[in-house]
Design a protein around this nucleic acid. Structure first.
Lengths: 182, 182
DNA sequence: ACAGGCATGTAAATAGTTACATGATTCG
DNA sequence: CGAATCATGTAACTATTTACATGCCTGT
């Protein structure tokens, strides 16, 4: 068996708590890990099949009312695989932040327009903070403490980022040659 | 002309400062933007061709000694395109951080092993900080202030992250049920 | 002579998103 | 009845990395 992709482990982790359908996994991911690891249907459904073939998860019919539905639970092998992955040092660390790229090249713009990039970035981070705060209550209710730890880390990160944007914006405007009235 | 990918703008930005070869672009990216926007040869060379066809960059032979070499410079159209991109609010914001994923699912591990994840993550960030610091001198020498602003932002970010790891590690070990001698 | 860096490029694989198709069920 | 949500899936596309191939030049 070739080794699994990190996205496979998201799914494995998500079904380890309780049996879930592909649809539910997507919903949970969108309300938790998506800020540092997203997953789309295009990944989830094929991956669930692969994991089932590998014997790491097991699907069973669990219709809601008359609506067809398959939930997947983790198997003993799957749990072992999950635990062994958790014990390896993390590898994938990636970031693609178009805003920083724009700041990097901002020298071709006048300072006022460069500052505008920072304002956009800050507004985006403030929006994220609101969404994360809305998720905080729900997450705090579970007995598993780790999702809350991560969520609060996300909040701190975005607060730092928003603050950085504010400081850099001020710095750009401060050092810009100003028009004097005298 | 279909719109360019953000990676195309990295290249456009990189040749806007001075004419550069694909090889040089890769080297500069690896020493600057790669922490928030990477680019590989597999992207750079084909993209340079596309940009040249679109008239946004222009290549010219610039052999070093007898060694064949093509450097690309930005055209007037290219500068216009770059500036107009810089004026749009940033769109792409992505993060894939396997460490946070592992912390998120750490409940299936005993606290001591969960703490180990944080130690790995912190060590990684400390390593990054060293590399960024090594780049700081060189970056500070240029007259364009923006790369230095971004680099220092990266330093602050990684320092925050390393500190967060330390705090969370302590928190996990603190709240773990301890063996008492009495 | 040979190692290492300069230089250009491509093929294949991997990863991931988007958009679409389909259909059932629930709620107002 | 119609809209929203539940539910599963796939095809096409886009993006990106990795690995390889090629060859020249420079310094030891």
């Amino acid at each position: 068996m070739e080794q699994l992709s990190p996205t496979a482990y998201v799914i494995l982790g998500m079904v380890s708590e309780e049996a879930r359908s592909g649809y539910e996994i997507k919903a949970v991911v969108d309300n938790s890990t998506r800020f540092f690891w997203a997953a789309s249907y295009g990944q989830i459904y094929p991956e669930l099949k692969r994991l089932a073939e590998a014997g790491l998860v097991a699907g069973k019919d669990a219709p809601t009312g008359g609506r067809k539905r398959t939930v997947y639970g983790i198997t003993a092998d799957g749990e072992e695989e999950l635990r062994s992955w958790l014990r390896q040092p993390p590898e994938t660390v990636e970031m693609r932040e178009e805003g920083l790229l724009k700041v990097f090249f901002a020298n071709v713009l006048p300072p006022a327009e460069a500052a505008e990039i920072l304002r956009s970035m800050r507004a985006y981070r403030l929006g994220l903070i609101e969404r994360l705060r809305a998720m905080e209550q729900m997450t705090a209710e579970k007995e598993d403490p780790y999702p809350l730890i991560v969520l609060r880390g996300g909040l701190e990160y975005n607060e730092w980022f928003a603050d950085w944007c504010e400081r850099v914006e001020a710095q750009i405007l401060d050092s810009a040659p100003e028009k004097r009235s005298s």
